[in-house]
């Protein structure tokens, strides 16, 4: 079982210009900006589950990312 990040689309504020999780994710090409839906999305195969995106998102009080077990 692996822990991977998951974005809750309704709470994500990427359409307002927030790029916190994309900026601070240590993995390359893992959290991408979905240009159609205007939200961040996680590429699960590349996520190592370090929880850094959860920390930056919740410290900015958006709480839009959680860790899920797959």
């Amino acid at each position: 079982m692996y822990a991977v990040a998951e974005v809750i689309d309704d709470l994500c504020v990427a359409n307002k210009g927030c790029r916190l999780c994309i900026m601070y994710c240590p993995e390359a090409n893992t959290i991408m900006f979905n240009k159609e839906n205007r939200v961040a999305e996680v590429v699960e195969q590349r996520c190592k589950g370090c929880e850094l995106c959860v920390v930056v998102c919740s410290s900015a009080k958006h709480n839009a990312i959680t860790l899920v077990h797959r």
Partner: peptide, 20 residues
């Protein structure tokens, strides 16, 4: 970053490593 392909891919550093 996040809207185009980055020049680094699937590196082998630890999860959460600031160096990456």
């Amino acid at each position: 970053v996040g809207e185009s392909k980055e020049l680094i891919e699937e590196h082998s550093l630890c999860a959460g490593c600031p160096e990456s």
